[in-house]
């Protein structure tokens, strides 16, 4: 299984990347670490003719924090986050998520921005960062815009990016000191994509965000999250069924179980 033919170009900065993508149109594809895109290309599920490598763009690398807002460059790798690149309480939370993404050899190359742009509903960052209230900084040839992750994520493998746009960074607010967090996922084998995900941020100062992921659609931010804290399995089943009516009983039970555990953990 080898990728089909394509042209590779490494972008030196954001402007070069977006210009190259604009030139390529729908046949172009931005690549971070390539840990999702390369398997799809090797399997010929994706066949872009122009790859634009953004993994070495300086403005997209690394993490900075200013006035309670943490900016994570899109090309920051999972391994860097696992090893503590993000400061503070948010960093602890994100390190825990990063450590359970795939395997270390994949985490050494895979990036946050790549995962968000790829938008596999069973991946970790789309659900976890939705619960953490991330905003996505998008760059294009005509300038930038910032979207809440719930606006950015449109569906399974579908995000609000035009062909010439890339994710430059994710921005997150540092959770309050009393914030509680839980992230639960069900995988049959460590490192595999999850069959069910629940993520809960319960921040008395900043609100409650409850997310159900690994669906056939984009991860769902539940409308009445705060009311669900400590909910039992029946209420969790109802809450999951409301956002994912297509789940069979097994899938519903898995998602509800993850959700119940996450809601119990933040209530404890």
């Amino acid at each position: 299984m080898k990728a089909g033919d394509f042209s590779y170009r490494r972008a030196g900065d954001v402007a070069e990347a977006t210009a190259a993508l604009a030139e390529a149109g729908w046949d172009g594809k931005a690549m971070g670490g390539g840990q999702s895109l390369m398997p799809m290309m090797n399997l010929r599920l994706a066949q872009p003719t122009q790859l634009v490598d953004v993994s070495a763009v300086p403005a997209m690398r690394g993490v900075s924090a200013d006035a309670g807002v943490v900016r994570i460059g899109a090309a920051t790798t999972h391994a860097e986050i696992e090893d503590g690149a993000v400061p503070g309480r948010l960093g602890q939370i994100m390190a825990g998520i990063a450590a359970d993404i795939a395997y270390r050899a994949v985490r050494n190359r895979g990036t946050v921005g790549g995962s968000l742009a790829h938008a596999d509903p069973a991946a970790d960052w789309p659900s976890a960062l939705l619960a953490l209230g991330a905003r996505i900084v998008v760059a294009g040839p005509a300038g930038g815009r910032t979207l809440a992750l719930e606006e950015f994520q449109q569906g399974a493998f579908w995000v609000a990016l035009e062909p010439e746009e890339i994710i430059e960074a994710a921005e997150l607010d540092e959770p309050g000191p009393a914030a509680r967090w839980s992230y639960r996922k069900y995988c049959r084998k460590p490192g595999e994509f999850a069959e069910a995900i629940a993520a809960v941020l319960h921040d008395p100062g900043g609100g409650t965000r409850v997310v159900v992921g690994a669906l056939d659609a984009a991860p769902a931010l539940l409308a009445d999250g705060a009311a669900l804290i400590g909910a039992d399995l029946e209420r969790c089943r109802a809450a999951v069924a409301a956002v994912a009516p297509g789940l069979d009983d097994y899938g519903l039970q898995l998602h509800a179980a993850m959700l119940r555990r996450a809601l119990a953990e933040v209530a404890a």
């Binding site: 790859l51 270390r104 994949v106 050494n108």
Partner: peptide, 24 residues
Amino acid sequence: CEHGVCGACNVLLNGVPVRACLQL
């Protein structure tokens, strides 16, 4: 496997393991 699952092709890139099949 050549799609990042099996790890047989792991090599060190700048000192850390990566999948050679997923690295252009």
